[in-house]
Computed example of a mutant assay.
Amino acid sequence: MHRNIIIVAGGKGLRMGAELPKQFLPIGQKPVLMHTIETFHRFNPEINIILVLPLSHQKYWEELCDKHHFSINHKLANGGVTRFESVKNGLELVNDEGLTGVHDGVRPFVSRETITRCFNSAEEMGAVIPVVAPVESLREVAGESSFARERQNYRMVQTPQVFHTSLLKKAYHCNFEERFTDDASVVEALGGKIHLVEGNVENIKITSPFDMMIAEALWNKSKETQSFPESR
């Protein structure tokens, strides 16, 4: 099936405390976003890559591509006010056939194994998301009270979230709701069943200076092994 990936990179990096948006910060002298795009290109050089960026960031991105001689083919879509709107804009550059994944631009360490599981499983099941189990104890907060919860009943959600393109497009015809925190929640609101596959613990979302420290360590490790970390 024809495969597409929408990479959403609309963050302003406020939690990072840096002048540059987090997707443009360097890891190993190259912007985070380029590492992310390269990961999907390595997975499948024929994959249709759609990068969603705020219009105000697109000229700077083009300058970065020139500076780093970045030549991986991709299409640009305008970012929206919300992630929902950004994905919707990206979907306009995708036809109704095949599979479409949506991935956070600041998750450069998703493994090839995770991507493969997501796309292969989505071909059969229609709607698939990668998850990892929490390792710390959980408590639910309700007002001034809190309650212990069984962590084995919960999973932490990652990307890429992959769907039959026709299903994802149909889901995004609805109006935005605050409960839409990711693409799975949009498809679920349509009545779609979401299937879970194993993610990889290195697939962190870079949102803080501490995350950048972890990202640098992962990058240095990947140089030693000549490959990006695989899931464990």
Results as ranks from 00 to 15, higher is better:
207 T>P: 00
197 V>S: 11
147 F>L: 11
131 V>G: 02
6 I>A: 02
4 N>A: 15
144 E>D: 14
160 P>L: 03
71 S>D: 14
83 R>M: 08
99 L>I: 09
182 D>H: 14
16 M>P: 00
65 C>V: 02
131 V>E: 05
22 K>E: 15
21 P>F: 04
59 K>L: 06
137 S>A: 13
56 S>F: 10
32 V>R: 09
88 K>V: 03
201 V>M: 11
176 F>Y: 15
210 F>N: 06
24 F>W: 15
188 E>K: 13
126 G>V: 04
72 I>S: 13
166 S>E: 13
16 M>W: 00
51 L>E: 14
23 Q>I: 00
198 E>D: 10
92 E>A: 10
122 A>R: 06
157 V>D: 02
31 P>A: 03
224 E>I: 12
201 V>Q: 15
89 N>D: 06
221 K>Q: 13
177 E>C: 08
165 T>L: 07
53 L>Y: 11
177 E>F: 01
30 K>P: 01
12 K>W: 02
168 L>N: 01
128 V>T: 09
93 L>V: 04
128 V>D: 05
19 E>F: 01
5 I>G: 00
229 P>Q: 06
83 R>W: 12
41 H>I: 01
218 L>I: 07
214 I>S: 03
110 V>H: 02
181 T>V: 14
108 P>F: 05
126 G>Y: 11
211 D>M: 00
125 M>D: 11
129 I>F: 08
216 E>L: 07
18 A>M: 07
175 N>Y: 05
3 R>K: 15
185 S>Y: 01
89 N>F: 03
84 F>G: 09
48 N>T: 08
180 F>C: 13
134 P>S: 04
58 Q>P: 05
59 K>V: 05
55 L>P: 01
165 T>F: 02
102 V>P: 05
96 D>E: 15
143 G>S: 14
97 E>H: 08
125 M>I: 01
23 Q>T: 11
114 T>E: 12
178 E>Q: 07
174 C>T: 14
215 A>R: 11
225 T>D: 11
70 F>V: 05
174 C>A: 15
115 I>D: 13
97 E>Y: 08
9 A>Y: 01
95 N>E: 15
86 S>Y: 03
71 S>C: 05
27 I>P: 02
80 G>S: 12
126 G>F: 12
